[in-house]
Amino acid sequence: MDFSVKPVLTGDRTVLRPFTEADAERMWEIVNDPEVAHFTGAPSRELTPRVLRDWYGTRSAQPDRLDLAVTDPADGELLGEVVLHDWVPEDRSCTFRTLIGPRGRGRGVGTEATRLIVGHAFEGLGLHRVQLDAYAHNRRAIRVYEKVGFVREGVRREVEQRDGVWVDEVLMAVLDHEWAVHRGHPDVPRRHDDPSPGHPGAAVTAR
């Protein structure tokens, strides 16, 4: 298991690639999008263009997490990010999070990006468990996670106030033996004569 290798994951709707410092300007626009701000928890420190340059400029050097840029395969436009973090080596587990800016929504980009990186977590990194938490009112994201195979495990009630309203947090996870059956497509029956071990339609290269 090696988080220091930063792959390029290629699908039909998106290409995931390592971040560079040059991505900070576009990510500044994305993190300040009102919908992203509404469905994302408060950052641990104040975000500024300088902070983001330092952050995204060092993502490829992190040995214990994987941050990948979500891009448009047609023109390379940066659409958002997907992240595997909070790695626990002894448990072979980590936490997943994502955010997609306005130009990447409604196109199936978020669903495919999630399938690609979670597939890499199991098939490339050998993880046993990938978990996440999401605000209960973020129904679109929860539907994406369910489509990819995440299972609801519980709810943390009224974890914080958002815009003056107490909100719940949904806990979800997917396990390696579950992924081995559906490979991110739990609603699509798998053909018994399909021997392929990899994620269909996804190509992986490493940098």
Rank of each mutant, 00 (worst) to 15 (best):
A42F: 02
A61Y: 05
P34M: 01
P34T: 03
T20S: 11
E21D: 11
L52K: 01
W55F: 15
D67A: 12
R26K: 13
S44Q: 12
L52D: 00
A37E: 06
V51I: 15
A37I: 00
L47F: 13
E29Y: 01
W28L: 13
P49I: 11
E25C: 02
L66W: 07
T40S: 04
R45A: 12
S44A: 14
E35S: 07
R65C: 12
P49E: 09
L47T: 13
T58K: 14
G57I: 10
R65P: 03
E35R: 12
P49H: 13
P49C: 10
A24R: 08
F39N: 10
D23C: 08
T40V: 02
E21I: 08
R45Q: 08
P49N: 14
V36D: 02
G57A: 05
P43M: 05
E25H: 06
M27H: 08
T48C: 07
P49D: 12
N32G: 07
L47Q: 13
V31K: 07
T48R: 08
T40H: 02
R50T: 15
Y56A: 04
R65V: 05
V31L: 08
R65K: 14
R26H: 07
L47H: 13
I30Y: 06
A61R: 14
F39M: 04
N32E: 06
P63K: 00
S44E: 14
E35D: 14
R65H: 10
N32T: 00
E21G: 04
A24H: 09
D64V: 05
P34S: 05
V31R: 09
E21P: 04
G41R: 13
E25F: 01
S44R: 11
R26Y: 02
T40P: 00
V31C: 06
W28C: 03
N32C: 00
A37H: 03
N32R: 10
A61N: 07
R59C: 11
P63M: 01
W28G: 02
D64N: 14
